[in-house]
């Protein structure tokens, strides 16, 4: 740590000795023009093109085909493509794919609650519509 914080001691109070806690990718690279750095930048642009193409596919699907196809199929396509985009953003742009596995699992496990959350609430909404349009008292 001696090479950090030595010019400005006040920094220590803001950050503490965090320098040894960085994940691997944070650690002491120096040459931004190195092949390793170039490879990373290439990966970023690759993901950009994937996101762009997936979005264009979604828009074309939404503009021209969504009224001709079965609703459930359209919804499935859109949700699958959305999850795909979200995966790329989280794994590559947010570097979650570069963190150690236990950290990745810690972030992802709470999100599985959404599976219950979505199914339960949408089913409830559908049941409301059924009740309101098929009520025997009407």
């Amino acid at each position: 740590m001696s090479q950090h914080h030595n010019q400005n001691e006040i920094q220590h109070y803001y950050e503490g000795d965090q320098s040894k806690l960085y994940s691997g990718i944070m650690q002491h690279h120096t040459d931004v023009n190195s092949p390793e750095s170039k490879k990373q930048i290439g990966r970023i642009w690759k993901v950009f093109w994937i996101l762009l193409v997936v979005t264009l596919v979604e828009v074309v699907l939404g503009m021209f085909f969504s009224h001709q196809m079965p609703k459930a199929l359209v919804a499935f396509f859109f949700l699958a493509l959305t999850i795909l985009k979200a995966g790329y953003i989280v794994a590559i742009f947010m570097h979650l794919g570069d963190e150690i596995k236990s950290f990745l699992i810690m972030v992802l496990i709470p999100l599985t609650l959404f599976i219950w959350f979505i199914i339960a609430f949408l089913a409830d909404g559908g049941f409301w519509l059924f009740m309101n349009s098929h009520s025997p008292t009407r």
């Binding site: 090479q3 920094q11 950050e15 960085y22 944070m26 979005t55 979200a86």
Partner: peptide
Amino acid sequence: ERRGHYEMVEKVGLYWHFVDLVWVFVFT
């Protein structure tokens, strides 16, 4: 530069990517 690392850039980066991530879902 004095601190010796650009971790703050990484932290606001996480926030910024999350905002993009949410937009992906709002868009859908």
